[in-house]
Amino acid sequence: MLVAVVKAIATQSPALKDPDKGLVPDVINFREISVHVAKAVIKQSIEEGLAAEKDIPEKDEDLEEWIREQM
């Protein structure tokens, strides 16, 4: 799960778009970053057979919307 979190945060790194920017996303984008992190953790928990919630959406767009509704 920890690896999934780190990878999710890494994909949101501002340095990917501009090498002069920081490695970690700004706290101002916390809610959107949280959606990406939650999606990664949920997908990993499903893959490992640890997800307890039923009817978790499979498609990324649907999963992101579902996560936002839970927030």
Results as ranks from 00 to 15, higher is better:
Met1Glu: 12
Leu2Met: 15
Val3Pro: 09
Val3Glu: 14
Ala4Met: 07
Val6Ile: 15
Val6Tyr: 15
Lys7Ser: 12
Lys7Ile: 10
Ala8Lys: 07
Ile9Glu: 04
Ile9Lys: 14
Ile9Ser: 04
Ile9Trp: 06
Ala10His: 11
Ala10Lys: 13
Ala10Pro: 06
Ala10Gln: 14
Thr11Val: 13
Thr11Arg: 13
Gln12Thr: 03
Gln12Ile: 01
Pro14Ala: 07
Pro14Thr: 00
Ala15Trp: 08
Leu16Asp: 08
Lys17Ile: 14
Lys17Trp: 13
Asp18Thr: 02
Asp18Ala: 05
Asp18Cys: 08
Asp18Glu: 03
Pro19Met: 07
Pro19Gly: 05
Pro19Asn: 08
Asp20Phe: 12
Lys21Gln: 09
Gly22Val: 12
Gly22Phe: 09
Leu23Asp: 10
Leu23Ile: 01
Val24Ile: 08
Pro25Cys: 09
Asp26Tyr: 07
Asp26Lys: 07
Val27Lys: 12
Val27Met: 10
Val27Pro: 00
Ile28Met: 11
Ile28Ala: 13
Ile28Trp: 10
Ile28Cys: 10
Phe30Met: 14
Phe30Ala: 15
Phe30Asn: 11
Phe30Glu: 11
Arg31His: 14
Arg31Met: 13
Arg31Lys: 15
Arg31Ala: 14
Glu32His: 12
Glu32Ile: 15
Ile33Glu: 05
Ile33Pro: 04
Val35Ala: 03
Val35Gly: 04
Val35Gln: 04
His36Met: 13
His36Glu: 15
His36Lys: 10
Val37Ile: 04
Val37Glu: 04
Lys39Phe: 07
Lys39Arg: 10
Ala40Gly: 06
Ala40Tyr: 04
Ile42Asn: 02
Ile42Pro: 03
Ile42Phe: 01
Lys43Gln: 10
Lys43Ile: 01
Lys43Gly: 02
Lys43Asn: 08
Gln44Ala: 09
Gln44His: 05
Gln44Asp: 06
Ser45Arg: 11
Ser45Ala: 11
Ser45Met: 11
Ser45Thr: 09
Ile46Val: 02
Ile46Ser: 03
Ile46Leu: 09
Glu47Ser: 12
Glu47Ile: 06
Glu47Gln: 10
Glu47Val: 06
Glu48Trp: 06
Glu48Asn: 04
Glu48Cys: 07
Gly49Leu: 08
Leu50Asn: 09
Ala52Ser: 13
Lys54Ser: 14
Lys54Gln: 15
Lys54Trp: 08
Lys54Thr: 11
Ile56Asp: 00
Ile56Asn: 00
Ile56Met: 02
Pro57Gln: 00
Pro57Leu: 00
Glu58Gln: 03
Glu58Thr: 04
Lys59Arg: 08
Asp60Arg: 05
Glu61Pro: 00
Asp62Lys: 03
Asp62Ala: 04
Asp62Pro: 02
Asp62Ser: 04
Leu63Tyr: 00
Leu63Ser: 01
Glu65Arg: 15
Glu65Val: 05
Trp66His: 03
Arg68Phe: 03
Glu69Arg: 11
Gln70Gly: 03
Gln70Asn: 06
Gln70His: 05
Gln70Phe: 01
Gln70Thr: 01
Met71Trp: 04
